[in-house]
Design a protein around this nucleic acid. Structure first.
Ligand code: MN
Ligand code: MN
Ligand code: ZN
Ligand code: ZN
Lengths: 154, 154
DNA sequence: CTCGTAGTTTTGAGTTCATCAAAATATTGG
DNA sequence: CCAATATTTTGATGAACTCAAAACTACGAG
């Protein structure tokens, strides 16, 4: 059983350089944090990085995720509720998400097709469809009892 | 050729009353406006209603769409870009949307299945999937030339 | 028809998330 | 190590939405 070593902690430095971005403590820490905590908000990242980098500011986190998103080292996702944008290091695999309507928990859902667009609808008003962003909404196992309490007919 | 008369302007009043909501000028006007201008934002609605109801406030529009959404007379949609939430009178038909990445134009896309959830992925981490919100992203016919100018390899 | 009450709108303030701009600082090639 | 330029920080600003209380209105009871 061998672990895929294409994404080691140090490789973030390489990926940053390959994108023409300078290697900074904030960017490296943000990438490491997002790899460990997918679907984090800018505020989550700020909180997660403040211990290691006390000087980091909210504005810096926004700058960082913006730059990393633009160079496709991270992916930005905007889920229906969830107030703020979320970020993750899983890019280029066209995966989707399932979100618990009770607790907000977010999990990845592999794309059945594996490439964009994974669906092709009938009538798209003449538009050329590039991607299909899918957000499944449901109830996670932990929240099912909660929901049954509130609405026994479930 | 007969027009479906199930949704006449006056029927908004009935639908409001059936939901236990009082019939007010703002609510009636908002429903009429949204029926004519689907996928409008709260700001769009405010602008569209200000002529007829000069006293209307931004807060009122938020109250109105919130109440109408809660009683399912309108549907709220949150699209990836687009900053603000959008609203429409087409409810209960589980339809989806296609959005032009250049100009932001939004169009309806009928659900192929016709009922939620229209997709059932393999692994959803034990969650019970209720709905699948799909946003197709692409380029509309009007914007294709623009895109070709910027990036000739298209 | 009038009145009273609960529902609704308005007014005003406040929050969160994100952006813009300029000064301070750090990275990196030479 | 230095200079050039990218990045971070600081500070201000904006957009969308929410909260709370006062003013107003729809509508059913009388
Ligand atoms: Mn993901
Ligand atoms: Mn629609
Ligand atoms: Zn849950
Ligand atoms: Zn377009």
């Amino acid at each position: 059983m061998s672990v895929d070593a294409t994404v080691t902690p140090e490789s973030w430095d390489e990926q940053l350089r390959e994108s023409g971005l300078r290697v900074t403590a904030g960017r490296r820490a943000a990438l490491e944090f997002l790899d460990d905590h997918p679907h984090s908000s800018a505020a989550d990242i700020l909180a997660g990085l403040s211990d290691d980098i006390p000087s980091i500011s909210a504005q810096s986190v926004h700058n960082i995720v913006h730059d990393l998103t633009r160079h496709e080292l991270v992916r930005r996702i905007d889920l229906p509720d969830s107030g703020s944008a979320r970020y993750e290091t899983r890019t280029h695999d066209n995966h989707h998400h399932v979100q618990c309507v009770v607790c907000g928990r977010i999990e990845d859902v592999d794309c059945v097709v594996g490439h964009a667009p994974c669906l092709t609808p009938d009538d798209v008003h003449g538009m050329t469809v590039l991607t299909a962003e899918i957000t499944f909404r449901g109830v996670c196992p932990e929240c099912e009892p909660t929901l049954r309490d509130r609405d026994p007919q479930y």
